[in-house]
Design a protein around this nucleic acid. Structure first.
Length: 188
DNA sequence: TGGCCGATATGCT
DNA sequence: GCATATCGGCCAA
């Protein structure tokens, strides 16, 4: 059973963890979510660094938040938390079905590289700026895994602030993640 | 209104 | 490992 908007109203970290291992369907693709990151009101969050563009993080839950970065890339989030600002960034997917559509939109035949990064998966799914603000269930059908998967927590990728937070969550042992998890003993 | 910077991807050394 | 494409969002001035 796909989740409703209400499912995203819970605390951001709970939603983020529950998304790992879930099956994600769009109108023409099916994937497993293998890597996400959580953002709330921490120093690295767009709610802080892009207060206007990311205001949706504070005022909604269960809505699509798409942002642009480095001019050409788009990344996909869902807003969370009824009681405060929050969003979960989708960072990597394991493609299950609709591979041809993904290949076409990504412009590559390398299955490994179809969705192993936030901008790559956004392109692979065909999510554009027009999805901004739409109810998540209208765009993404999310079905959490029946049995809780093994999850590994790590530091978030590419952020320069709030580096100590381990709010990157990956599916243990998945070969589809965007980068190896960092060691807890050697924070960067 | 100018200038800096970024939750990235890719190609080259 | 490193350079760089490419541009919206933001804020200082």
């Amino acid at each position: 059973m796909p989740v409703s908007e209400e499912w995203y109203a819970r605390p951001t970290l709970d939603v983020a963890r529950d998304l790992v291992g879930a099956v994600l369907e769009t109108h023409d693709t099916t994937s497993r979510i293998v890597e996400v990151e959580a953002y709330t009101d921490d120093a690295a969050s767009h709610f802080v660094t892009r207060p206007r563009a990311a205001a949706i993080m504070g005022s909604t839950f269960g809505r699509i938040y798409v942002y642009r970065i480095y001019g050409m890339h788009r990344c996909l989030n869902v807003t969370t938390d009824r009681d405060g600002p929050g969003a979960v960034l989708f960072r990597a997917l394991e493609p299950l079905d609709g591979l041809d559509a993904m290949r076409r939109r990504r412009g590559t035949d390398d299955v490994r590289a179809l969705a192993d990064g936030p901008a790559k998966l956004c392109a692979a799914l065909g999510i554009g700026d027009d999805a901004f603000g739409r109810p998540a269930p209208d765009v993404l059908r999310i079905t959490p895994s029946a049995a809780p998967p093994r999850i590994r927590a790590a530091t978030r990728i590419g952020v320069t602030r709030a580096r100590t937070l381990r709010w990157r969550f990956v599916l243990e042992g998945s070969p589809w993640i965007s980068r190896p998890v960092d060691s807890p003993r050697r924070p960067r």
